[in-house]
Design a protein around this nucleic acid. Sequence first.
DNA 1: GAGCCGAACGTAAACGTTTTCACGAACGCT
DNA 2: AGCGTTCGTGAAAACGTTTACGTTCGGCTC
Lengths: 354, 354
Amino acid sequence: MTATIKDVAREARVSVASVSRALNGTGGVTPATAQRVREAAARLRYVPHSAARSLITRRTHAVGALMPDLHGEFFSELIRGIDLEARSHGLHLLVSSSHNGTEDAAAALRAMQGRVDGIVILSSPRVDAEFLKANLPDGLPAVLLNSDVRAGAVVLNIDNFAGTYAMVRHLVGLGHSRIAFISGPKDNFDAQQREAGFRAAMGELVPKAPLRIVAGDFGEASGYQAGLELLASKTRPEAVFAANDMMAVGCLQAFKEAGVDVPGEIALAGFDDIPIARYVTPPLSTVRVRIAELGKNAMDLLADLMDRPGLSAASVHTLGCDIVVRESCGANRGGAAASTSTSTTKKIRDPSNR
Amino acid sequence: MTATIKDVAREARVSVASVSRALNGTGGVTPATAQRVREAAARLRYVPHSAARSLITRRTHAVGALMPDLHGEFFSELIRGIDLEARSHGLHLLVSSSHNGTEDAAAALRAMQGRVDGIVILSSPRVDAEFLKANLPDGLPAVLLNSDVRAGAVVLNIDNFAGTYAMVRHLVGLGHSRIAFISGPKDNFDAQQREAGFRAAMGELVPKAPLRIVAGDFGEASGYQAGLELLASKTRPEAVFAANDMMAVGCLQAFKEAGVDVPGEIALAGFDDIPIARYVTPPLSTVRVRIAELGKNAMDLLADLMDRPGLSAASVHTLGCDIVVRESCGANRGGAAASTSTSTTKKIRDPSNR
DNA sequence: GAGCCGAACGTAAACGTTTTCACGAACGCT
DNA sequence: AGCGTTCGTGAAAACGTTTACGTTCGGCTC
């Protein structure tokens, strides 16, 4: 059926060994014969059998991406970043997404055993340290994304802390001090870090302001509820900072229905910069996460790890966020230029320029 | 290092053949020995080497997904649908996205050679019939998505034609007859079909109405421009139907800036039902494409094809769309119930119930 | 009790590569 | 001129499975 290395060898009148050497660019072959082999291979449309190669090489030239069941932009951008970088490393990408339970993820992990040379794992609350210890085939290079596992692994995190901190600084710079926070799910790693960043920033920047935190779950409805709750309180906040954009959007809706002007009466900010953020009215100020870059960096870390011998150096890396200033926080009325606040966290002016 | 079938054989005191038979459920082995083998395998944490298996079996138990460089919801939902269904078939998913040029896609196609048992290809303008004939390894089962290739392939398309037709019917039912259309890129297959559906619907439902079509490119800016152009015309349309949501959003922005009330003065509709659609004001009526289902169906077709011997029956399938009625078309003021218009195309009432 | 048949199991070949090793030939050196 | 070294090449082993083919053995029929 399909041509094999023997066919090429016969066609080029050399041994299979020479064909292998010529095609792989391993030395030890004359330019002339290399050329002859290449021609023969092209003539026969020869493409090496990857399984046979993997069998002896112990390398699959593929990496896996394991992620929980998530929709939308985050998923696609992450895959995009990983895929692009993987291809530039000559690697294939095996995707296994949409896992809910631990046993689901464990099965996927097992199934990837031997099919990939490394793996990028996007953590969910269920996928924690002991889960990985139990299910991750040891010796398999892995990079963990947004994980609180700190022991013996390579971890790459979004700098949620710095992001929230910078946004609080921005809001404070605008003159607000009574800033309320809508938090995310208790078991979510990003949510925890964002709340921590908020607490730290408030404590350091406006230490005498009251700390108001209302619970949310990253869903739009919980943001709406939080908005109602905040409106009902005796002293309304000057600004509301939601731990993600969906909640900010829900909160905005509550404000709108109550006839509260944003940002006139209350300023509003979110986190993530989902596409919707720039299309609500007023456009939402938020913290942008460069997700594709997160994927790219994860893939780079993984590639490094795979080149390394067995030595898997544990390390923690972070990827900075950008403050994107639109109208919902009230800073963008005039034409003030953007300024950089941190080395990793840039401030961007984005006047909903659709 | 890792346990091999020989180790299991030794541990279970049988031959490697029996191990293979026991673990694969091929007959010819006593329940007792099968049990013994399973225990030994579990004890050694044995997992069969997939490359070795593929080498002799000529099966990889993996399918590929080849897609152009696209962002956002469409990508993630499609992958999601494919992945879920692939896993339920016991197949792995090899993703290769973000291809721009033909040579890029050709390389990806070649690289997948031998790594997958079948492939799902999402067409882009560059990937046409002769490209596939030239680059698709023959004998490799393939399912084409949103493709105008009709010869010798299995094709699954969104029913753009019926979708646009149904939306026009809906607008006409609302009393509009001067309906303008903002078209998509000329070389885009979906855009072509949507325009064809619009022309057909207008010709049949309101034959005496003038046919107004202004050119767009699926981008938001082009929708904005089209909006301006329509406002400037001597007889303004009663309704505007954009070939996709992004253009409808741009158009809406133009109307807003001009102080034109939507849907009061002009009704507006889009196509795709991107997440943003429900968050603009007024929420956008549109045609929903069930993308995850598209992916699932594609995977099912592919699985069928792979089970088949060599006989690759060419066929064309379509997936219906849903009309989702929000406020931008003016139908949703009252509380009218939803009605079904076609067997494949349902009409949904969706009053922006965030 | 001889013959036979089918089931359970083992032996070994095969799948298509890479890589180690051996073998010449060519070459530069004393 | 002889020798050692390098270099290009080929033969063959190895990777871990599946499976075709024997072989054994127990139980059945006459």
